[in-house]
């Protein structure tokens, strides 16, 4: 499987994401520059963490107008999987690919710590290898990670089983403890915690790998189901 990791000016988790999928997961991975009008032949896209365009105007606000985002919108419309982590999540909500918004943490402080996050649904290509209710210890590092949406949107997310991850120790004030959500087609996941920073034993934990390997596993399953030798 080939992952494409988007690089915006100011992305700073792009190499972490690349390392996690290429070294820890042993998949192909390449960087995609923000002004690229196409995604090439990648099977999945990761929008990494960081401070795209210096977080100027609003987090993710300038990134949503970059040429690569037009390509990503088409990719998503065609069912292509996109994982947005931290700033990547902020870009996805700004671009309208996920509902709601991410605003300044309730305590106004930048929060950098590892904490427990619960898998709320396994019905997605990003979480199917996890167990329902599994607790993942994942690092968070953000100043604007407070997820907000109107009540109707929140109810809809819950009703459609689109809250993928919830904080057990909600430090940023996110509504309903939301740490990660899926789009309607379930092929886009935005999450504030960093799975790529918990993918190598040297980093003190590998709980984040389940998200990335679910994606790779879903692709392998998909490829197998389309081959004549498939047992599925």
């Amino acid at each position: 499987m080939k992952f494409g990791v988007v690089v915006f000016p100011g992305s700073n988790c792009d190499h972490d994401a690349w390392y996690a999928v290429s070294q820890n997961l042993q998949q192909q991975a390449e960087f995609i520059w923000h002004d690229s009008p196409s995604l090439g032949d990648v099977d999945a896209v990761i929008l990494p963490g960081g401070f795209s365009y210096g977080d100027y105007l609003r987090c993710g606000a300038i990134a949503k107008f970059s040429p690569v985002m037009s390509a990503i919108k088409k990719f998503v419309a065609g069912g292509g999987p996109v994982l947005g982590v931290c700033n990547g999540f902020q870009v996805l909500v700004e671009a309208g690919l996920l509902p709601g918004a991410l605003v300044r943490n309730a305590g106004l402080k930048f929060i950098c710590r590892t904490g427990p996050v619960r898998v709320e649904t396994t019905d997605s290509i990003f979480t199917h290898q996890a167990e329902n209710g599994q607790i993942l210890q994942l690092p968070i590092a953000h100043g604007e990670g407070c997820y907000i949406a109107d009540q109707e949107t929140l109810d809809r997310l819950e009703r459609e089983d689109r809250v993928a991850l919830r904080y057990l120790d909600n430090r940023n004030g996110s509504m309903r403890d939301i740490a990660g959500i899926l789009n309607e087609g379930r092929n886009v996941l935005g999450m504030m915690p960093h799975p790529e920073r918990a993918a190598d034993p040297l980093m003190g934990g590998t709980d984040g790998l389940v998200i990335l390997s679910s994606l790779a596993g879903a692709y392998a399953g998909h490829a197998a189901s389309h081959s004549p030798a498939s047992k599925i």
Binding site: L57, R58, A61, V93, G100, A101, V103, I148, A149
Partner: peptide, 8 residues
Amino acid sequence: DVLSNPVI
């Protein structure tokens, strides 16, 4: 479309 985010 640019200067504000109508969601918030």
